[in-house]
Amino acid sequence: MRVAVTGTPGTGKTTATDLLASDFEVIHLNEVIRERELTTGRDDERDTLITDLDAVASWLDDREDVVVESHLAHEFDADGVIVLRCAPEVIERRLHERGESAESARENAESEALDVILGHAVQNHGEDAVYEIDTTDRTPEAVAAEIDAVIAGEREPSAGTVDYTDYLR
């Protein structure tokens, strides 16, 4: 079984997956991409690497009983996709605290309000394979417990349950 944990930067993916009780291996995909140079170049405007999705898919191909964590995790084969959600204002603050530019923090907050990652996850995997978890007012331990519940089959799919469109007004 392969589970993807995805979401806009700043939603708590890395923190929560580091606390999982599951025996599944956690793959922090962004680290793998950097370390193995699974890229096609650099986006100078955004100051980011451009991921080679085919190379990553090939690297992931034979891995089972894993949790794949990244804002890109929903782009790859998975039995279930967990989309971590968080209030855009909180994302913006967290990204500022990490040293992201105001423009980048705002762009990510707007993407969260527009359900960009959720939409891609549903498009790629179908509603019946997508689970939303709102991390805004939850501790990392509580979020990890929710992820563990999905892995254990104790939680129903829940795509479309979180709404942050008020942020855009």
Score class of each variant (00 low, 15 high):
44 D>G: 06
95 L>H: 12
53 L>M: 13
126 G>A: 09
37 E>M: 14
108 N>E: 00
146 E>Q: 14
83 V>P: 10
126 G>W: 14
137 D>H: 03
77 D>P: 08
58 S>W: 00
41 G>Q: 01
165 T>E: 10
50 I>V: 14
161 T>N: 00
114 L>A: 06
16 A>L: 06
89 E>Y: 06
151 I>M: 03
44 D>K: 00
113 A>Q: 02
67 V>I: 12
42 R>F: 09
21 A>G: 12
17 T>C: 15
123 Q>F: 15
49 L>G: 12
150 V>Q: 02
11 T>G: 01
1 M>K: 03
150 V>K: 11
134 D>A: 07
132 E>I: 10
138 R>H: 14
36 R>E: 15
23 D>F: 00
3 V>K: 03
43 D>R: 06
40 T>W: 04
137 D>L: 08
158 S>E: 11
129 A>V: 12
132 E>T: 03
9 P>Y: 14
39 T>S: 06
42 R>S: 09
158 S>W: 05
5 V>Q: 02
141 E>Y: 11
122 V>F: 10
120 H>T: 14
114 L>W: 04
22 S>Y: 02
166 D>E: 14
84 L>W: 05
34 R>Y: 09
32 V>K: 11
128 D>H: 15
97 E>N: 07
29 L>E: 09
24 F>I: 01
71 H>L: 09
159 A>R: 04
57 A>P: 01
82 I>P: 15
160 G>L: 03
128 D>V: 11
11 T>A: 08
132 E>L: 12
124 N>H: 12
3 V>H: 00
120 H>I: 14
144 A>C: 04
124 N>I: 00
24 F>Y: 15
65 D>P: 02
126 G>N: 13
167 Y>C: 00
102 A>Q: 07
25 E>N: 03
63 R>N: 13
60 L>P: 06
14 T>G: 03
164 Y>W: 09
68 V>S: 05
19 L>H: 02
40 T>K: 13
105 A>P: 07
67 V>E: 01
74 H>I: 09
91 I>S: 11
80 G>M: 05
131 Y>H: 14
14 T>N: 04
35 E>R: 12
155 R>H: 04
24 F>P: 03
12 G>W: 05
23 D>Q: 08
110 E>H: 13
146 E>S: 12
132 E>A: 01
81 V>Q: 07
57 A>H: 01
18 D>T: 14
36 R>F: 03
146 E>Y: 02
121 A>F: 15
116 V>F: 14
118 L>E: 08
108 N>L: 05
89 E>L: 13
84 L>V: 07
74 H>P: 03
100 E>W: 15
102 A>L: 15
149 A>T: 05
52 D>S: 12
132 E>H: 06
129 A>F: 11
31 E>V: 07
115 D>K: 12
3 V>Y: 08
72 L>F: 12
125 H>R: 13
42 R>I: 02
100 E>T: 04
161 T>E: 13
38 L>C: 06
150 V>P: 07
16 A>Q: 11
10 G>L: 03
67 V>T: 01
123 Q>W: 14
153 G>K: 05
134 D>V: 00
31 E>F: 09
40 T>S: 10
54 D>R: 10
